[in-house]
């Protein structure tokens, strides 16, 4: 005890007070820990953020042919794509697709989760049935739904017997048809079949999330509500749903970034569609970059996609950081 005091004294008098604290931080354990995470930090810095930066740089260049040309173009590429019919249509489609897709996945997932949570006998059977589509890739889903909803095959053969003729994703109708910029703004009817296919595949995921959330809510809460005289509906509406808010938040974020970047489902199921009614920024980006060799314009589209996703993700990350602290 006295040893420590005598040893500590000269240090305190000669050096600033924070020094020993810092030295204690960088002991052997911490060096080892840093050594372990450093490779992944470097790799992520280079291969993720480095390439995002590179993409941003390319998007400001004049590299719009097979030959690289890095002379500065300012925001010309951005100006071009925003004036472009196809990209305007992409923005319209992606807004409505994301909106409908998230609403459908959240509501269906929640309803199915509540259904499975009712202490069913064959619970695991139902859970697996609903989860199964998630095991498929979007490519498989796209090809299957392309034929299920094609106007000359699939479900339409049944509907035709009932006298219903639907054009599904080949329809070029847009509601309510307001002319903005170069396009008709409104809900493209052809997006709905794509929403159906995407929802079919992703509902299982939101179901699993909500089910985990429901299982995490203690029974005492429900019982307390019942004691207070709440009806079952009120229990769900006033007690369970608010408890599920963080889960719902996560589901929305995850679905939003899937739908904003969707490529494979569109590419295999509908393609860009007549009059670009089912085109999405991801498909446009691929074709602009790798088919037309407009690398700078493609990079500009990629940057805008990144921004769109960031609009959803950044507030979420900030919020969840605060939640942890």
């Amino acid at each position: 005890m006295s040893d420590m005091v005598t040893q500590g004294r000269p240090r305190l008098s000669n050096q600033p007070a924070f020094k020993p604290r810092r030295r204690r931080r960088m002991n052997a354990d911490r060096w080892i820990a840093l050594g372990f995470i450093l490779p992944s930090i470097i790799l992520i810095a280079v291969f993720v953020y480095g390439f995002i930066g590179w993409t941003g740089y390319v998007s400001l260049s004049q590299w719009n042919s097979f030959l690289p040309d890095f002379s500065f173009a300012g925001f010309d590429n951005y100006a071009y794509i925003f004036k472009n019919f196809r990209f305007q249509a992409d923005l319209r489609n992606t807004i409505f697709f994301t909106l409908f897709f998230i609403i459908a996945v959240v509501i269906l997932g929640l309803v199915l989760a509540i259904f499975i949570d009712q202490k069913l006998k064959a619970e695991s059977l139902f859970r697996n049935i609903f989860l199964f589509p998630m095991a498929l890739s979007f490519v498989v889903t796209g090809v299957v739904w392309r034929w299920v909803l094609s106007p000359s095959t699939g479900v339409n053969l049944f509907l035709e017997h009932l006298g219903i003729h639907l054009k599904w994703y080949t329809s070029t109708a847009i509601f309510p048809h307001i002319h903005i910029g170069m396009i008709d703004f409104g809900i493209p009817a052809a997006v709905i079949p794509v929403v159906i296919a995407a929802t079919w595949q992703q509902t299982g995921f939101s179901l699993a999330m909500f089910l985990a959330g429901l299982r995490g809510i203690p029974d005492e809460l429900r019982e307390a509500a019942r004691m207070d005289g709440a009806t079952e509906l009120q229990i769900y509406w006033k007690v369970i749903l608010p408890q599920l808010k963080p889960i719902m938040f996560s589901v929305i974020i995850i679905m939003a970034h899937i739908s904003l970047k969707i490529f494979d489902l569109i590419y295999t199921m509908t393609g860009s569609g007549a009059n670009y009614v089912t085109d999405m920024p991801g498909v446009n980006m691929f074709e602009t970059t790798f088919k037309a060799n407009y690398y700078a314009q493609g990079a500009a589209i990629a940057m805008i996609m990144l921004l769109l996703v960031a609009i959803f993700i950044v507030p979420y990350l900030i919020k969840s950081r605060k939640g942890d602290a």
Partner: peptide
Amino acid sequence: AVLLGSILA
């Protein structure tokens, strides 16, 4: 759950 969700996202 939030943490896991955010890591996944």
